[in-house]
Design a protein around this nucleic acid. Sequence first.
RNA 1: GGCUAGGUAGCUCAGCUGGUUAGAGCACACGACUCAUAAUCGUGGGGUCGAGGGUUCGAGUCCCUCCCUCGCCA
Length: 572
Amino acid sequence: MARILITSAIPYINGIKHLGNLVGSQLPADLFARFMRGRGHEVMFICATDEHGTPAELAAAKAGVPVEQFCADMHKVQADIAAGFRLSFDHFGRSSSQRNHRLTQHFAGRLAEAGLIAEVSEKQVFSVDDNRFLPDRYITGTCPNCGYESARGDQCENCTKQLDPTDLINPRSSISGSTNLEVRQTKHLYLKQRALKAKLEAWIDSKKDWPILTTSIAKKWLNDGDGLQDRGITRDLYWGIPVKKGDQPWPGMEGKVFYVWFDAPIEYIAGTAEWADAHGLDDAAWERWWRTDKGAADVTYYQFMGKDNVPFHTLSFPATILGSGEPWKLVDYLKSFNYLNYDGGQFSTSQGRGIFMDQALSILPSDYWRWWLLSHAPESSDSEFTWENFQASVNKDLADVLGNLVSRVTKFARSKFGDVIPAGGTPGAREAALIDALTTQLRSYEANMAAMEVRKSAADLRALWVAGNEYLQAAAPWTVVKSDPDQAAMMIRLAMNLIRVYAIISRPFIPDAAAAMMHAVGSADWTWPDDLAAAMQTLPAGTGFNVPENLFRKITDEERADWQQRFAGIRT
RNA sequence: GGCUAGGUAGCUCAGCUGGUUAGAGCACACGACUCAUAAUCGUGGGGUCGAGGGUUCGAGUCCCUCCCUCGCCA
């Protein structure tokens, strides 16, 4: 039994995520976690909300509630939706937790002791009326280059020129519109990433089995232009983790907080500590997942994220870990995803375009979405959601191939043999051939799942389902029963056992349907079918079974057209 | 403009270090079956593998040029 640590990129607290966010990190991470658990491995699967920073403060202000309250409420909302999608986190933490405060401050202290923190004095725009420093992109003004009146302080959208906020003509606060702005001197901490470049590069180079998408992004940041840059890790904000050096004050940094991208990945670790706290366990319980000197040496650590998160996970976070000089676990395998597009354009949180997680659950149960999203995961390139494709895949794969298989077996069994799995008959060459074919396909499925080849795994799983229909079609128990009821009973007994096997191996993709299948055949034995021939004899004759409701219903053309129209616009 | 990835059947995609008639699912046509959610199973049609050069006995697979899409960066 192996020990598997899995983290999903943590979603930002501000609002409900769309299906593109889901399929890029949380959902494939869940698939992998469920698979590894199913195989009997010890799994720790951690996710959290990423709560700090200006957008959360502004959203809270807009909602008219204190930011602490806003984040607590939104965390609850996101946790409920995650549960709705059956995301099986061992813990869904919060980057604003006290655990993360202490750990983030601890890392900063260690980095300072290692001489990897620089204090830099710089000029920044302060909005008097808002009573806050403004991030560059929250300053609006006229572009000195092209005259565009709504240029942002970091870049003009119109002429794409890179700007400094002080370049803007008639600058104003994007928050309040106030023009009462001042340039003030402020001091910030920088993480000396340049000093860690050689270490980071050696570490990246040691990862021979990482996808090109991952290593190329990392190497570009390492070597492009002037190479890896030192990075500011503090901000003049209210909402964040107070800057401290371990548990000691940091002179000159009073009232400042750490930058959200510094504390967010640390929450992977802190979230595991939160898990221990929530279960009344001591520190050793979570440290054995993260400290190689305290039991984590045999842990394999997998991260899942969208491609936009790769630089932070290949460089910034490892710089924090390596720079600390302490034996924290570094990621072993990093699975990154491209983007999912929506009907010809991008999903967009800021523009409200696409389908959001709560909307998805309001029209169909999670299994439908899980299946489509995972079987079309944007692995090798961006992929596209269309309602036509969604309807076709769900109806064919789930309703026709799998759902109908369960129906035809259980209904036939009920009408011909009664309430229990029937006895009699002897398996022959056809049954042996089926088990051989299933075994081969199952080994392929396991290999693809272990390699996080999501689409290929889905294709293998579907092929396993199809093999069941092929067998039934060829064996034709509905014909055999007329002349040799015992042989028909044997076929049905085998099919019932096959449904149980399907429940186990399908569970990572469609957990609810898997539970329904297991219930239908009157079992609760989720042991992975390492030996398929043996697994196919798990349910003995005499076992009671149920005829379930249809596992999946079909999406009608009318529904598709309705949803297509309903979700065509912009969410407000 | 620089960089990554991609451009393969109507659609969504596989095709590892170059090697017999380029594959799968869906869709389509025909057939079988009738236990089942008008489900299932079988067979078949359909592609000059973005364009043009080149290397090679042989290229979707390597090299060069160009076109297009997406993203990142500037």
